[in-house]
């Protein structure tokens, strides 16, 4: 009976884990592209500004960013602005978008100038060259590092518990405070299953894009 009770509690926590994971991905994937364009901008002040921002976000622990986003606006204005959950999402989205932007930048810059020039002499607009010629090649090239980052995100969701979001680890921790330790170790099964599914998904995507080289 105890096992089912624990499992149900952890599944309850898993809902939050999944929500943080999904929302972060959906929002950070496009935001990362915008940031990568900023960091590659020919308008130098913008590029430096964006690069400094990325440095700060990647240089400060994500846990601290979650705490800052939840507590600091409250201190400044006198009442909390973002709910606990929104603070976590905001911190995660900004943080992951910065990491994604660097992966995108690497992918975009690895496409040879010749691809752009070929598109240009064929009368394509810059937008057409990016979306019709460059983007698919970038997707193929960034798939492996993105897989890595996405898998890290699964486990980073556990950081949400610093502001009392009950995700899988926190759900297990609640049992631990009553002296029941094994649920904490049991959480590993959930993460392993989650990451296992993602690994299969990324393998599938890589196979899908394997029809061409280059």
């Amino acid at each position: 009976m105890e096992f089912w009770k624990v499992t149900l509690s952890l599944l309850d926590g898993l809902q939050n884990t999944c929500m943080i994971f999904a929302l972060t991905l959906v929002l950070a994937l496009p935001l990362g592209l915008v940031i990568s364009f900023g960091s590659m901008s020919k308008f130098k002040p913008l590029a430096y500004l964006v690069k400094t921002f990325v440095w700060i976000i990647r240089g400060v622990p994500l846990m601290l960013q979650v705490i800052i986003l939840f507590y600091v606006p409250g201190f400044l204005i006198g009442r909390p602005i973002l709910s606990r959950f929104s603070s976590v999402i905001a911190a995660f989205v900004i943080n992951y978008a910065c990491y994604f932007s660097e992966i995108y930048r690497g992918g975009i810059e690895s496409i040879t100038k010749g691809q752009y020039e070929a598109g240009q002499v064929l009368g394509m607009t810059k937008t057409q060259v990016f979306f019709k010629v460059v983007l698919m090649q970038v997707v193929k090239r960034v798939l492996a590092p993105m897989g890595n980052e996405v898998i890290t995100l699964v486990k980073d969701t556990a950081l949400a518990r610093v502001i009392m979001i009950v995700e899988v680890i926190q759900a297990a921790q609640n049992f631990a405070s009553y002296g029941l330790m094994w649920p904490l170790f049991y959480t590993a099964v959930f993460y392993l299953a989650f990451v296992g599914l993602l690994t299969l998904l990324f393998n599938y995507l890589e196979k899908k894009l394997d029809y061409y080289k280059g």
């Binding site: 070929a118 064929l122 009368g123 019709k132 010629v133």
Partner: peptide, 28 residues
């Protein structure tokens, strides 16, 4: 568009078939 250019190193679009490489720009 008055001119066409053939590059030394081809610069074909790797993700498209031969036919798609040739039709992409005219279709756009």
């Amino acid at each position: 568009l008055n001119f066409g250019l053939v590059f030394q190193d081809f610069n074909l679009f790797p993700q498209y078939t031969v036919l798609e490489n040739v039709t992409l720009a005219p279709k756009l």
